[in-house]
Design a protein around this nucleic acid. Structure first.
Lengths: 230, 230
DNA sequence: CAGATGCTTCGACCGAGGTCGAACCATCGA
DNA sequence: TCGATGGTTCGACCTCGGTCGAAGCATCTG
């Protein structure tokens, strides 16, 4: 298959609303079952099965079999990056969404949620802003850099500072905020550190992430987040 | 329209082989007419017109009217980045293409060509490798950084070194080489510098870029490209 | 072994959309 | 004003693929 044909194949896979809903649901980096994805996309199991087979066949998803369950997940960070690129264009030109029945879950999603392997949402944007304001990172649309001050911060969190500095900052356009948060190795390392410290906890069946009281205090102090002190 | 629906819309647009061929043809950053794009995609003018209207309507392309010509181009760097992300995934999993009738044009395309606003191909990969080997840049899949040595190189080329250093290196996976070359602000600045010096020249009706004798010598010296001395 | 549950395959239906020829509109040159 | 050329609109055709119910397969539990 030529590269153009393969490109069109991937586009066609993303071009169906049902498959799209599944991919978006999987963008939090977790593996979900066919039934969960069928519910998320609002179709019957046979339809979901057909779509998942196509996405897996095309190496956009990978499957882990565990007993009678089959867990589907985004196949690679490269695929996740591709989807982020698409979402950035989609969110920029999408008409402002009607806000319908904004429940507590929606609010917590907007506050903090996972984005494949890192954190997104209002607080994640604030963290990126705070680090940039204090000169711990330098951001641009094409990439970013970790500074000496940033390395110092990572050491206080016991995150290994890589030998090659400045290579792990990737800005990621935030759906809800339309501003940048931290992806790349830095974003992943921060999320990992917050999880192991029990500062954040993933919710069941949602990309939303909840803050523990400890986490709320710690993040407020570390990144000067006034919103978390309220 | 919801974000998911907009995402699916963009996917569907990319999902048609004809539109895909047009987008790929436009990825060199130049503006092409409807007729040229119809030829590139192998369809009749009415078909091309319909597709171009859709792509323009969705803000993936923009149109410049000049007399009875209408020049179509990629609407933004963001769209170009999105397409690069798709191509990275597409090229990684695409079956090795049958090499059919490799003409001189194909060879020069593989050597050096434009990739939206920067250079790609064998020599572009060699330039990125050379700069990395000599510590002028540091590369990773998520971003890169310009070093002191790299800034010195830019000064010898009379390229303005930005106030915030290290923000303009974006690795871009090369179709033909399957390795990284330089995108982002640095890639664009280098291409611009080479063009204004007359070292490279864009071909008519192709993404291929030709090297002048001067350019061949200059690039060979600047980046230690043995391939260019032969 | 038997029932329950998760998931897939099969077959039939149906709507969406890509394609082209013909005709039409817009702009340029003489 | 009158071709000539670039580009679009219209209408008819036809294929492709998404959808679901029914049935079948696989795996766990009792």
């Amino acid at each position: 298959m030529s590269s153009v044909a393969r490109l069109a194949e991937i586009g066609a896979l993303i071009g169906d609303p049902t498959r799209c809903a599944m991919l978006v649901a999987l963008m939090d980096g977790r593996a979900l079952t066919a039934s969960e994805l069928a519910r998320a996309a609002g179709v019957t199991p046979p339809t979901a099965s057909s779509h998942l087979a196509q996405l897996t066949q095309a190496d956009l998803l990978s499957v882990i079999r565990q007993g009678r369950h089959r867990y589907h997940q985004i196949a690679s960070a490269e695929v996740a990056r591709m989807l982020e690129g698409l979402m950035a264009v989609a969110s920029r030109t999408a008409a402002p969404q009607r806000v319908v029945a904004t429940g507590p879950r929606d609010q917590s999603m907007r506050d903090l949620r996972t984005c494949y392997d890192h954190l997104a949402g209002r607080h994640a944007v604030a963290i990126a802003d705070g680090m940039a304001a204090r000169g711990q990172i330098v951001l641009s649309p094409d990439g970013g850099r970790l500074t000496e001050a940033g390395e110092a911060l990572l050491r206080t969190l016991s995150i290994d500072v890589p030998a090659e500095p400045g290579l792990l900052v990737r800005p990621c356009l935030d759906w809800s905020e339309r501003r940048f948060h931290l992806g790349g190795g830095l974003g992943a390392a921060l999320q990992q550190a917050f999880l192991t410290r029990g500062w954040i906890r993933r919710s069941e069946g949602s990309r939303a992430v909840s803050l523990s009281p400890d986490g709320r205090r710690a993040l407020a102090d570390l990144f000067d987040l006034e919103a978390l002190r309220a």
